[in-house]
Design a protein around this nucleic acid. Structure first.
Length: 606
DNA sequence: CCCCCCCC
């Protein structure tokens, strides 16, 4: 029986300068693998090994085909007909990028015994990879044809011939652009446009701007200098779709951009940009990180966030340490249904002009994560924000906030416990950061010079009965110092007074536990009294009368509280250890606790 | 060819 596969296709791709025009090969998938580097908008990327029965080559699928992998429609041994693809050669390796495919019915068996073309070529002649690297090629398969026909169906005047006076090459996916190829046109939407920036350096003065383009396969940043600013700045409106051709492709300097592409476009004098009225090009894609999950990100990471603007702070100004220049800044507070709030800082013109007095939902793309106050967010030059966008996440947030969110007490990000580093007098102080007992131990809270503060939701497992109190100075003005019985009365060294009887105050040792572990904590009088529901002095009286005092201890056991904790370094027999002191006891706050737990669950990566 | 993204 003849093989259903397109014989010789792999060799053709690997060796030929020209891609087979109009060929839609049928190939077999030998493997599908998720690769580590995420694609545009943080989506997963999949690498395929494709066989023509004799050889195999590597391929990537465009992210809009990811669902076919996820549904297992695209899987090992499946036959596919590639109806849209480009081939890409970088560093001597050929890669097929599949833009569109159809699966072909097949019995699931592997066809032939294909071998790796790359290795054979490399072993056969050492010059092969070098030659490929020196003269890399990129050719287009079915993509251009598909684009033309779909544009034709839509009635848009977007056939290559109608795009401009000169032949500028076939329509390319952004994902298929590379520096080795200059005959291309992309059709893409401007998702972000910077202000015009003027600069002055050794080379002279100049101005520039940049935009981010997006199509169904990816995004790319483009920059224009001087004349390009005059030619294109006004035309390239945010949100609109354009044909772009005859521009240069450079290697992107990733450290200065959050745009997900190895390359970037540089507008040149001969660059052509024309508006396009085809609106099928995708809108901005978001990959939102929940506000409660920002702890999973590293400082300086870039992310997308959506939230309700709960507070808008006044316009302020800071002076940059680096440049000594003043910058306008404005902080806003964002919340979402995680129960967590986060501060986001706007800069410059954006800070000055920001207005939101009706608690809108705002979607932010490309904001930078900071670690000030635990977690904070900052606008970036290439960040965008969209007020009340018409996306489901925004509608959900609006509904949640109006129904219940406006009454929620939000948990702010804090540095470890510093929210409570002032004494308990801080009424209405924000609750300090929730930590499980396991986290408190893992993070070695209380093991450094400074005292750490945190809150633990835990259950009383055991209360020590033997010593629960100390005899304290009875001075009604409040002294609370320990007093000693010298035989003639209880002496307070601080007050220099003697009392017939001391007042017993709690120094209660308890073992408390949560799902991650347990630790021993000490509660002093007020907190212990809350837990024991009897004063230490009364309890001591009962004990001295010889009564059974077991009942209040039993009653205290098994109850769950939010313990505001202070963890301090201490030593015991020359071994450093942590002393955990309970500074406040309250009913558990299930809202913030749930937010904390869901954050922990998300960190499990399951 | 810019490339700073700031402060507390």
């Amino acid at each position: 029986m003849a093989s259903p596969l397109t014989a010789g296709f792999c060799e053709l791709v690997f060796n030929s300068a020209e891609a087979p025009e109009g060929v839609q090969p049928t190939l077999q998938v030998l493997s599908v693998k998720k690769i580590n580097a995420p694609g545009a908008s943080g989506q997963d990327r999949y690498r395929l090994i494709l066989s023509d029965g004799k050889h195999f080559i590597q391929a990537m699928i465009a992210t809009q085909l990811n669902h076919m992998v996820e549904s297992k429609e695209l899987d090992k041994n499946v036959l596919i007909k590639m109806t849209g693809y480009v081939t890409n050669a970088v560093q001597g390796r050929k890669l097929v990028i599949i833009l569109q495919l159809e699966t072909v019915p097949w019995n699931g068996e592997k066809i032939g015994n294909p071998t790796n073309l790359e290795q054979q070529q490399g072993a056969g002649g050492t010059s092969a990879p070098a030659a490929a690297a020196a003269a890399p090629k990129q050719e287009v398969g079915g993509f251009a044809a598909r684009q033309q026909s779909s544009a034709g169906r839509g009635g848009a005047a977007s056939k290559p011939g109608a795009r401009g006076k000169q032949e500028v090459g076939p329509l390319y996916p952004i994902e298929g652009l590379s520096p080795y190829q200059n005959k291309w046109t992309i059709k893409a939407r401007v998702t972000q446009k910077s202000d015009i920036k003027h600069y002055s350096n050794q080379r002279g003065e100049g101005k520039l701007f940049s935009v981010t383009f997006m199509d169904e396969t990816g995004e790319i940043r483009a920059t224009g200098f001087n004349e390009a600013v005059d030619n294109f700045y006004n035309m390239l409106e945010e949100g609109k779709v354009f044909f772009i051709s005859r521009a240069r492709i450079n290697i992107a300097k990733k450290q200065f951009s959050n745009v997900n592409n190895e390359y970037e476009i540089m507008f040149e004098n001969q660059t052509e940009i024309e508006p396009c009225d085809d609106d099928t090009v995708p809108q901005v894609k978001y990959n939102f990180k929940g506000i409660g999950d920002l702890g999973e990100l590293q400082k300086d990471e870039i992310c997308d966030v959506i939230g309700v603007v709960r507070e808008v702070h006044e316009l302020g100004s800071v002076t940059s340490k680096a440049t000594n220049k003043p910058f306008a800044k404005r902080d806003i507070q964002l919340v979402d249904s995680s129960g967590q709030s986060v501060r986001l800082t706007l800069w410059g013109k954006q800070a000055e002009t920001f207005q939101a007095d009706d608690q809108p939902v705002i979607a932010f793309k490309g904001v930078k994560v900071g670690d000030f106050g635990g977690r904070s967010l900052s606008m970036f030059s290439s960040a965008t924000m969209s007020v009340n966008p018409d996306i489901s996440e925004a509608h959900q947030l609006r509904g949640w906030f109006d129904a219940e969110g406006h009454n929620t007490q939000f948990q702010a990000y804090t540095n470890q416990g510093n929210a409570n580093s002032t004494s308990g007098a801080a009424q209405g102080a924000k609750p300090s950061e929730l930590k499980t007992i396991g986290e408190a131990k893992d993070e070695s809270l209380g093991m450094s010079e400074k005292t750490d503060y945190f809150t633990t939701s835990a259950t009383v497992a055991f209360v020590k009965q033997e010593t629960f109190s100390y005899p304290a100075c009875a001075n009604p003005e409040g002294c609370n110092k320990k007093v000693v019985d010298d035989g003639t009365g209880w002496l307070c060294e601080k007050c220099d007074r003697k009392w017939d009887n001391p007042i017993h105050r709690y120094i209660l040792s308890m073992n408390v536990m949560d799902h991650t572990g347990s630790f021993w904590i000490t509660a002093f009088n007020e907190q212990a009294e809350q837990i024991m529901e009897i004063s230490a002095n009364d309890l001591m009286k009962l004990k001295e009368e010889g009564s059974d005092i077991n009942a209040p201890f039993q009653k205290a056991t098994g109850k769950t509280y939010a313990f505001q904790m202070m963890a301090k370094q201490d030593s015991f027999n020359d071994q450093p250890k942590v002393r955990y002191q309970c500074r406040r006891v309250s009913a558990p706050d299930y809202v913030s606790e749930s937010a904390h737990l869901s954050q922990l669950i998300n960190q499990m990566n399951v």
